[in-house]
Amino acid sequence: MVDKFLGTWKLISSENFDFEYFVLHCAGVGFTTRQVGNHIKPSLIINMDDQGMIFVKSQSTFKTMEMKFKLNDTFEETTVGNTV
């Protein structure tokens, strides 16, 4: 099932970002980061290795974030607001 998601995905547009913008503010994401986030269109790159480890990279001109995990295993993710 994961195979269907592997590859590179490019954000084309955002709808209802005003609500997301509010949620980011409540989550403690700073003003500048929210402003930039409203205008960038990141790529999402999803890969998987032979042991079933999934790698997800969100890449933009502003910031690149990466995480890795195995399905059904608990993991911690640091959000754009630097919270775990």
Rank of each mutant, 00 (worst) to 15 (best):
T32R: 12
M53I: 05
K57S: 04
F62G: 05
V2I: 12
T8Y: 02
K70R: 09
N38Y: 14
D73M: 10
K41C: 08
K63D: 12
N16Y: 04
V2Y: 06
Q35N: 15
K4I: 03
D73W: 12
L11W: 04
M1I: 10
V29H: 02
G52V: 03
H39E: 15
L44K: 08
Y21T: 07
D18V: 09
R34M: 05
K68R: 12
T79I: 05
L24K: 04
H39F: 15
Q51P: 10
I12K: 13
E76F: 13
T8P: 01
T32F: 14
E20S: 11
D73C: 11
N38L: 15
V2G: 06
W9R: 00
T61N: 15
V80R: 08
M53C: 04
M53G: 00
F5Q: 04
T32S: 14
T78A: 05
S14K: 13
M65D: 13
S14E: 09
D18T: 10
N82L: 09
T61S: 15
T64Q: 05
K68F: 03
K57Q: 07
F55V: 00
M1C: 12
D49H: 01
E15K: 12
K4R: 10
F69Q: 00
T74I: 15
K70H: 03
L71I: 09
S14H: 09
V29N: 01
F19A: 15
F31T: 07
H39R: 15
K10C: 11
M65Q: 14
F55Y: 11
T78G: 01
M53D: 05
S43A: 08
S43K: 11
S14R: 12
V2H: 03
I46W: 00
D18C: 05
E66P: 06
V2C: 05
V23G: 06
W9S: 01
S14W: 09
F75P: 03
V23A: 09
F75W: 06
W9F: 03
N82H: 08
D3R: 02
L71S: 07
V80Q: 10
K63E: 14
K70D: 00
S43W: 06
M53A: 03
F55E: 01
G28D: 02
M67G: 07
D18I: 08
E66C: 10
G30N: 10
M65K: 13
I40Y: 04
K68C: 05
K4N: 08
K4D: 07
G30I: 03
Q51T: 14
V36K: 07
G52M: 04
V36L: 10
T61Y: 14
Q35L: 15
E66V: 09
T83M: 13
F31N: 06
E76Q: 13
E20P: 03
